[in-house]
Nucleic acid binder design. Structure first.
Lengths: 157, 157
DNA sequence: CCCAGATAGCTGTATCTTACAGGTACTTAT
DNA sequence: ATAAGTACCTGTAAGATACAGCTATCTGGG
């Protein structure tokens, strides 16, 4: 470690360390925000938000498909979906093509609530990044997109 | 919304939406990884890792300082520190300058374990970002750093 | 010096999120 | 028609965290 800087021999090592640090930090911020925000923004559970975004994006799906996509156990999604149905955010209907399955669809109320949360979060980022130049915001968005893309196609965790 | 693109009137809105989406996605990746990794990498709890990094970085501290810094309740840190002491990762000594407080210091074993986890995570990022140009990695690191900086100084969550 | 209020840490308890195990109903393949 | 697999649900358990209440200690005004 700690080679001659001019060679750049372990510059990448250093950069990777920085990325590791910053991602870890970002995760902590996110979790803390989620918890601290608590009742206020919790018109919509974080889990519910993710599910609604998925349904809005990829169309009505059954529970197994959701669970796979969200990296969650089926039983977890069953419970989340039950709560969301109780709150009128989604409807659950028998799958006409598979008697075992249930198709989950967002309700208008659910989509509306999701959009509101999304707008609030976007506004929050607007505040947080208030001093940034537009091109820097763009660079950030692009770098995050590429990071997620890389994570999705990672070799083997 | 959806103004004439040539004016760039709501380009920022769109960019903020992208950032919101990508951060949310990154969080889900992180959580899924943490859970899936499970017993394997769990030579070191994620909480313990963060605490050790902090102690290594900022020196021995008492529990309240840690809790404040980590955005956690004092009782949570008390329990985490107890577990870490049981595992020989830290030591807890009475604060000579405040009879109420306890000073938490990392042990050599704790630092070593932390360094090992850090190295493993750095290697993981090396795999994930295998195809990236060094300057892109650098840009990512810098953007993440600036994002975290902005989060730290955010107006008011 | 002494007491009131603040602070540090610990313990008990509750909540939230999740996973795993087992059960039932249905589907698919042989 | 039967066996194996799948989809979902329910029971149970584990982990992380917050809040409330407790004790010991510190600090500042009389």
């Amino acid at each position: 470690m700690s080679e001659d800087p001019s060679t750049g021999a372990d510059t990448d090592e250093v950069t990777l360390g920085r990325i590791e640090t910053e991602v870890a930090l970002l995760m902590r911020f996110g979790e803390a925000t989620r918890r601290r925000t608590g009742a206020e923004h919790r018109v919509l559970d974080r889990a519910a938000y993710v599910i609604l975004r998925h349904l809005a994006d990829a169309g009505p799906q059954n529970i197994s498909a959701l669970a796979t996509r969200l990296n969650l156990d089926g039983s977890t999604v069953t419970r989340q979906v039950s709560a969301m149905q109780r709150d009128g955010l989604i409807v659950r209907e028998p799958d006409p093509r598979d008697g075992r399955g249930m198709v989950v669809s967002p309700t208008p109320a659910g989509l509306q609530r999701m959009a509101a949360v999304q707008a609030a979060r976007t506004r929050l980022y607007g505040d947080i990044l208030a001093g940034w130049a537009p091109e820097d915001r763009d660079t950030l968005a692009e770098m995050l997109r590429r990071l997620n893309e890389a994570l999705e196609h990672r070799p083997r965790p």
